[in-house]
């Protein structure tokens, strides 16, 4: 799981072009959107697309749980791990 967390941090930095951010700067439990890292709704779409491409998982924008899955890197890692085992 910790490998997946680190992998997701690198993915976030790469796909969102976060020039001045290193994986160490991203706290796995802190919010990704609004406060914390400060990402916005376009970033959420971009990240969703990257997850679909890399892990071949589908994300339902209408699903209430999606918001929880995207809340932090830890939540994303859990979501990706569960989707891959499903």
């Amino acid at each position: 799981m910790s490998n997946l967390v680190e992998e997701l941090k690198v993915l976030i930095i790469d796909v969102l072009n976060l020039e001045d951010v290193t994986p160490e700067d991203i706290q796995a439990e802190e919010p990704l959107f609004g406060e914390g890292l400060g990402l916005d709704s376009i970033d959420a779409l971009e990240l969703g697309l990257a997850l679909q491409k890399k892990y071949n998982i589908s994300i339902d924008a209408e699903n209430e749980n999606t918001k929880t899955h995207f809340a932090s890197v830890n939540n994303l890692a859990k979501f990706v791990a569960e989707s891959q085992n499903a």
């Binding site: 970033d43 971009e46 697309l49």
Partner: peptide
């Protein structure tokens, strides 16, 4: 391929 939402915007 699916389009990048950022690039599209």
């Amino acid at each position: 391929e699916p389009l990048s939402p950022t690039a599209f915007g």
